[in-house]
């Protein structure tokens, strides 16, 4: 800064002004600036005007300009802060959005899993029920069949006794009583059963 100023000042000092000032003094009664009688009035008015100007500047003008500049700086700082706040808020919002998205995704996955297992359970239950029903039906049918067989087996003695009585009457013309025939048939069958069993 200092060097730059010197560079500017030196050539200006060497300008022809000084030469003029010295040379001009010889003719036309010299430079009016060197007329000492004008100095008191100039000094007086310089002091008066400069003092008034300084007063107005320091009391009115510079504080006003400073306040305008400071207000603007304040506004800029505030706006920057606001922008920073908004930026943080946006980041927060994005993070919370991402978090909620993630939560929703997890929840959806869990729900899907639940629904799947529930459906499976229902299907299993239905299957089990069906199986029980079928088993019951099978059992009923079996019982019926058993009963029918038992009945058939029970009536087989009678049929056998009748056939035996008829066969005997045909071959021998004997007329055995029903009771005797059924007794002997029973005996024969029991013997047969014993033989088969041994």
């Amino acid at each position: 800064m200092r060097h730059k100023t010197l560079l500017l000042v030196v050539p200006l000092l060497m300008s022809p002004g000084l030469g003029w000032a010295a040379g001009g003094g010889d003719e036309a009664g010299g430079l009016p600036q060197l007329d000492l009688t004008t100095w008191p009035t100039q000094l007086f008015w310089l002091v008066v005007t400069f003092a008034i100007m300084y007063l107005l500047m320091s009391v009115m003008v510079t504080p006003r300009i400073r306040s305008v500049l400071e207000d603007r700086q304040q506004r800029i700082t505030n706006d920057l802060e606001k922008a920073r706040d908004a930026d943080t808020k946006v980041t927060e919002m994005r993070l919370s959005y991402e978090a909620s998205l993630e939560a929703a995704r997890t929840e959806a996955a869990a729900k899907a899993r639940d629904a799947l297992s529930e459906a499976k359970a229902t299907a299993d239950e239905a299957e089990a029920e069906m199986a029980t029903k079928l088993n019951q039906k099978l059992k009923t049918a079996e019982t019926k069949l058993m009963k029918m067989r038992d009945d058939a087996m029970a009536s087989i003695d009678e049929v056998a006794a009748e056939i035996t009585a008829q066969t005997v009457s045909h071959l021998t013309s004997l007329k055995p009583t029903k009771a005797a025939v059924s007794k002997s048939v029973k005996d024969a069958m029991a013997t047969r059963a014993n033989q088969e069993a041994s």
Binding site: T38, T41, Q42, W45, F50, I52, M53, L56, M60
Partner: peptide, 21 residues
């Protein structure tokens, strides 16, 4: 006892103050 007359120089000092302020 001092001559402090209002001159053309004084006028322009006043104008300088008025104009700048």
């Amino acid at each position: 006892g001092y001559d402090v007359s209002f001159t053309n120089s004084s006028l322009f000092m006043v104008l300088t103050v008025l104009a700048s302020i």
